[in-house]
């Protein structure tokens, strides 16, 4: 016997409210766990935690170390330290970068927009084109266009993101000189707002392509197999038995049903996109959080690294919640969907 929930229709609005509430709880939970993890990591690192926090910069400077010890309460019991660091994190006090001589939060907020722009664009592009290619391949399963797209996505899927970026630079910037090899905007030129937007977009082409390629391949493969699976379901036969045209079957029955697993995976992959942004920003000197973490690694600037880890995690949860909301819009059965 089946235990299937039947949520009546009026429940839909309240489902949104519940979704928002559980999203907020999720974010706070993750913040707390990451803060705890960061705390443990600083103490697990080899050497004096104060030196870890100071980074390579001031490792030898005894006054700085004393200052850090008192600021972080490093002489107090672990639990007290943990509690105070959790409290600080919840109030978005992410500490101070002794290397950069600034609070970590201000540094992160300055870099966040560039990262959001890059990851957001790549995420949306890969989803749109990935599902489109997957649909073409899936509806033509077995034909040459399917084989072609399948091979292309298999190849794309095996490319290291950073290497793809470098190869694109080698081809389009070094050889052909079509596109700028790095940066966010042309420096030292007077521009109107529109010119500036166009300039940024121009700089974005290569980084976005490098980041989007792998995910495009993932979503295309997923969409293809999903389409093939949905194609065999009874309701497609019903539509055919109604006399509905093939193109309408694809648009009205196949697509919406087939895209559901893609949305789920896209939500789960959001962390991967954000991680990929780190290497892409490093390759293209894109002034976002990824580039910042690369510099922080070189300088062993732990407060910055940990701050980025926290902020990026929040961004990922944001993307998760977004995909969940989209799923809810597409699927009226949302309340029957289990966690797995």
């Amino acid at each position: 016997m089946s235990v299937v929930a039947i949520t009546r229709y009026g429940g839909r609005l309240s489902a949104y409210v519940l979704g928002a509430a559980s999203g907020a709880v999720k974010i706070i939970g993750v913040i707390l766990v990451i803060a705890t993890f960061n705390f443990i990591l600083v103490h697990a690192a080899p050497g004096d935690p104060a030196q870890v926090i100071a980074g390579q910069s001031g490792a030898a400077d005894e006054t700085l170390l004393r200052q850090i010890r008192s600021a972080y309460g490093l002489d107090q019991p672990y639990l007290v330290q943990l509690a105070s660091s959790l409290k600080k994190t919840l109030t978005l006090d992410l500490g101070y970068s002794y290397r950069q001589q600034r609070t970590v939060l201000s540094l992160l907020l300055e870099r966040l927009p560039a990262t959001l722009l890059l990851t957001g664009t790549a995420f949306i592009l890969s989803l749109v084109f990935g599902t489109a290619l997957g649909t073409i391949a899936g509806t033509r399963a077995g034909k040459w266009s399917d084989t072609f797209f399948t091979i292309v996505s298999l190849l794309l899927y095996a490319l290291p993101v950073f290497w793809l970026g470098l190869m694109l630079v080698l081809l389009f910037s070094v050889q052909l000189n079509w596109l700028p090899p790095f940066g966010y905007v042309t420096v030292g030129v007077e521009m109107t707002t529109w010119q500036r937007i166009a300039d940024i977009a121009w700089h974005m082409v290569l980084p976005t392509l490098s980041l989007a390629a792998v995910y495009l391949a993932i979503y295309a493969r997923l969409m293809r197999s999903s389409i093939i699976e949905v194609k065999q379901q009874d309701f497609i036969k019903t539509a055919r038995a109604k006399g509905v045209t093939e193109s309408r079957i694809v648009m009205h029955h196949l697509l919406r049903n087939a895209i559901l697993p893609v949305i789920t995976v896209a939500g789960m992959q959001a962390g991967g996109v954000v991680g990929g942004a780190v290497v892409v920003e490093t390759v293209f000197a894109w002034p976002g959080l990824g580039r910042l973490i690369y510099d922080a690694v070189l300088q062993r600037d732990y407060p910055v690294m940990q701050g980025i880890f926290l902020i990026m995690s929040i961004v990922v949860i944001g993307l998760n919640l977004l995909t969940e909301a989209v799923y809810r819009m597409v699927d009226p059965r949302i309340s029957v969907r289990s966690v797995t």
């Binding site: 379901q233 009874d234 309701f235 036969k237 019903t238 539509a239 009205h252 029955h253 919406r256 049903n257 597409v330 699927d331 009226p332 059965r333």
Partner: peptide, 8 residues
């Protein structure tokens, strides 16, 4: 159940 489109 499977003969009807679940989303419409």
């Amino acid at each position: 159940l499977s003969a009807l489109n679940p989303l419409t």
